[in-house]
Simulated assay, not measured.
Amino acid sequence: MGLGGTAKKIQTLAEKAEQTYQRLNDLREEVEKTQETVTETGDRVRQLETEMAEQRAVLDAVAEEVGVDLEAVSTDAHITEAESDDEADDAGDDGSADTDGDDEAVDDDS
């Protein structure tokens, strides 16, 4: 009976070792796929950045050709964006999150 119990324990241990080995292989494959994805994504980002720089150069040349002041356009765009953000903040600040009715205490923390 001692040998049968030992054989069963060895078999159980071997099965667990095999399962662990399989999990490690699966994990290794996942890590390799993730590394490939990260590398491919990095390559795509670099390509998009290059394309954006090329498009920006073309837009700058066209704007200069037709006499558009790029600094003024950029400034206007930033002002418009800031105003939109302020309006969105004002619209979202309806006091519903302020349970004690003290609006100033909430504004001072932000």
Rank of each mutant, 00 (worst) to 15 (best):
M1S: 04
T12C: 11
L59H: 15
A97L: 08
L70D: 02
G5V: 04
V66Q: 08
D90T: 10
Q11F: 06
E15P: 03
D103Q: 07
E30A: 09
D90R: 14
T12K: 13
K8M: 11
S110E: 15
I10Q: 10
R46D: 15
N25V: 03
G5F: 11
E49V: 07
S84H: 06
R56C: 08
L13K: 11
E49A: 05
S84E: 10
M52C: 14
E32F: 02
T80H: 02
K16A: 15
A61F: 02
K8Y: 00
E40F: 04
L3K: 12
G2H: 02
D60N: 12
K33I: 04
V106G: 03
V106W: 07
T50C: 02
K33Y: 03
A53V: 09
E71M: 12
Q47M: 12
E15F: 07
S84P: 00
R44L: 06
E65W: 10
K8D: 12
E54K: 13
K9S: 10
L48W: 00
L27V: 07
D89T: 00
S84R: 13
D76M: 02
A7H: 10
E51I: 04
D76W: 04
H78V: 00
T12D: 15
R56N: 08
D100I: 01
Q11T: 13
A97V: 03
D26C: 04
T37Q: 13
E40P: 02
G92V: 00
T50S: 13
Q47G: 14
V38G: 01
D109N: 07
D76Q: 13
S74D: 12
T34A: 10
G2T: 03
E15I: 09
V66T: 03
D43W: 02
